[in-house]
Deep mutational scan, measured.
Amino acid sequence: MSIQHFRVALIPFFAAFCLPVFAHPETLVKVKDAEDQLGARVGYIELDLNSGKILESFRPEERFPMMSTFKVLLCGAVLSRVDAGQEQLGRRIHYSQNDLVKYSPVTEKHLTDGMTVRELCSAAITMSDNTAANLLLTTIGGPKELTAFLHNMGDHVTRLDRWEPELNEAIPNDERDTTMPAAMATTLRKLLTGELLTLASRQQLIDWMEADKVAGPLLRSALPAGWFIADKSGAGERGSRGIIAALGPDGKPSRIVVIYTTGSQATMDERNRQIAEIGASLIKHW
């Protein structure tokens, strides 16, 4: 068994979910400061990975656009189908120029040979490839089937209604394609530690997140040497930005962190900087 497989195998399969305990108010002060700096709502939650206990939260039950963070949930649904014998990671999917949508850096290079389901999930999570996400959504039956998958695992909040790139529209008070920080954190924890997926599929999902190549300016920029992070970022219209992550010291994950913001006029660089500063405070007061 590899070190990575050993790491995931040791994560307990508890489903406990406790009331908020504000253990590190310094980080919450930074979250509130980020709201002021961005002129926007910021949602934040931090869960203990083992117990599910809420360590910190701010606007945990307010809706925020999911943006590309939904791609982790999508690949979780795909892996669930693989575990059930309904899908194969090695199955090759062919597509055409007409299937390509905005921001598809991986799929646009494989119009001739197509891509396997495994490769599409990797592209969707590590590079946030939008066409890969749409092709994967098609394999499970579309956005409503992803919502149904989430409902079946106990998440009655998170919903996907549209395809890429329309799902990033982020209209105020529009519940389409949204989640809440508390719901997303709990669902991510179930996918990474629960019995919904096999150990091999849980390991595959966290491996894809660990290999994320487009979230460098966010939490990763604040991470000390030797820390572990597996994450997925998202960006949308109307100043929307977000990240979901499993992270921790000593090379293994010990907490789930979810950060969303929407409604800002700030630049992407400024949104990234504020999320990175929240991450720096989190690590400082770990």
Rank of each mutant, 00 (worst) to 15 (best):
A133T: 09
E166Q: 08
M127V: 08
K284E: 12
A182T: 13
A246L: 14
T139A: 14
T131P: 02
D250N: 10
T178Q: 02
G142V: 01
E175P: 11
L196V: 13
A225L: 14
N152S: 13
N173P: 08
E277R: 10
Q86G: 12
L136H: 00
A9E: 05
L160R: 03
D99V: 12
L197D: 02
T158C: 02
R271L: 12
I11S: 04
L167M: 11
S254F: 12
S254L: 11
R7H: 06
D99E: 13
G239S: 04
P224L: 03
G39R: 14
G242S: 08
S264G: 14
R189I: 06
E166M: 13
L219W: 02
R92V: 15
L111R: 07
D174Y: 02
H94R: 11
R159C: 05
I93M: 02
L218T: 03
L160A: 14
S51G: 12
H94S: 07
F14V: 10
T186G: 15
S221Y: 12
R63V: 08
K190N: 14
P253A: 10
T107I: 03
L218C: 05
R92C: 07
R92E: 07
A215D: 01
P60V: 10
P65W: 01
S221K: 11
S96L: 11
S240C: 10
E164D: 00
H24A: 15
R92A: 08
D48V: 03
T158V: 03
V8S: 15
M180K: 15
H5Q: 07
D83Y: 01
D161H: 03
L282F: 08
A183D: 08
Q88F: 12
Q86R: 13
K30G: 04
R220P: 02
L223Q: 05
Y260F: 08
V82S: 08
P60T: 14
S221Q: 14
S68C: 00
L79I: 04
I229A: 04
P217S: 10
E87L: 13
I171R: 14
G43S: 06
G226V: 03
I125R: 00
D231A: 05
H24L: 10
L137K: 01
I93T: 04
F228C: 08
D161A: 05
P181A: 07
I244A: 07
G263E: 12
D174R: 02
E277D: 04
E87A: 07
P25Q: 07
T112M: 04
P65E: 02
G114S: 03
L192F: 11
D231R: 02
V257I: 09
P249V: 07
A235D: 02
I11T: 08
L219E: 02
Q203L: 10
E237D: 13
S57G: 12
W286M: 07
N134R: 03
D36S: 11
G251L: 11
S240Y: 02
L137E: 02
L89D: 04
M66T: 06
V82I: 09
P249I: 06
F70S: 10
S233C: 02
W163G: 10
D212N: 09
L218Y: 01
T262S: 11
V82Q: 05
G194C: 07
V82D: 04
V72S: 05
A266Q: 07
S264R: 04
G239W: 01
D231V: 03
Q86S: 13
A185V: 07
R238G: 11
R59P: 07
I244Y: 01
S57M: 10
K30R: 09
A148D: 12
A280G: 12
T107S: 13
A211S: 14
S96W: 09
P65T: 03
R91C: 03
P172S: 13
M66W: 05
S2C: 08
W286S: 00
L19E: 06
L73R: 00
A77G: 07
K213V: 13
A245S: 12
A266C: 12
L135Y: 02
R81W: 05
A276V: 07
V21S: 06
V82E: 05
L137W: 02
S254E: 14
A23V: 14
G226R: 11
M268Y: 06
L218P: 03
V82M: 06
T187E: 02
Q265E: 11
D83G: 04
S221C: 12
P249L: 05
I259M: 09
K53T: 14
D83T: 04
M127R: 10
K30Y: 08
V106D: 08
R241K: 06
K284L: 09
V82H: 08
M268E: 06
D48N: 05
F64I: 02
G142E: 04
L79T: 01
P143T: 06
L135V: 11
T158N: 00
L188E: 00
N168L: 04
L135G: 01
D174F: 02
D212K: 04
S240F: 02
L89H: 05
L55P: 01
D161K: 02
Q4K: 12
R271A: 09
T179W: 00
D207A: 14
E164R: 00
L146V: 15
R92D: 05
T178L: 01
D83A: 04
A170G: 13
F22L: 12
T138P: 06
R118T: 07
E56D: 10
S221W: 10
I275G: 00
G90T: 11
P12L: 12
H94D: 09
G141R: 05
P224W: 02
E237A: 13
I125N: 01
I3V: 07
E175Q: 12
P60S: 11
L137N: 03
L28R: 07
A9G: 13
P60H: 11
I243S: 01
H5D: 13
S221A: 11
A16S: 15
N173S: 14
N50S: 14
R59Q: 05
M180L: 13
A235T: 06
P60C: 09
P224C: 04
L191Q: 03
H285Q: 09
A246S: 12
A222N: 14
T262K: 14
A133V: 01
M209I: 00
T112R: 15
R241T: 05
G43V: 13
T187Q: 04
A225F: 10
T179H: 00
D33E: 15
F13G: 06
N168G: 11
L199V: 09
E277V: 12
D174K: 02
P12R: 04
T27A: 06
E169G: 14
A123T: 03
P224A: 05
G43A: 08
E169R: 10
I206V: 14
P249R: 11
Q204L: 12
K213N: 15
E166A: 14
Y103G: 06
D83H: 03
D129G: 00
T193L: 15
G194A: 09
I275V: 00
Y44R: 00
S221P: 10
S80Y: 13
W208E: 02
W163N: 12
A266D: 11
R238I: 09
L160H: 05
W227V: 01
R176A: 04
G239R: 01
P105H: 04
L282R: 03
I256T: 01
K284Q: 12
S80E: 13
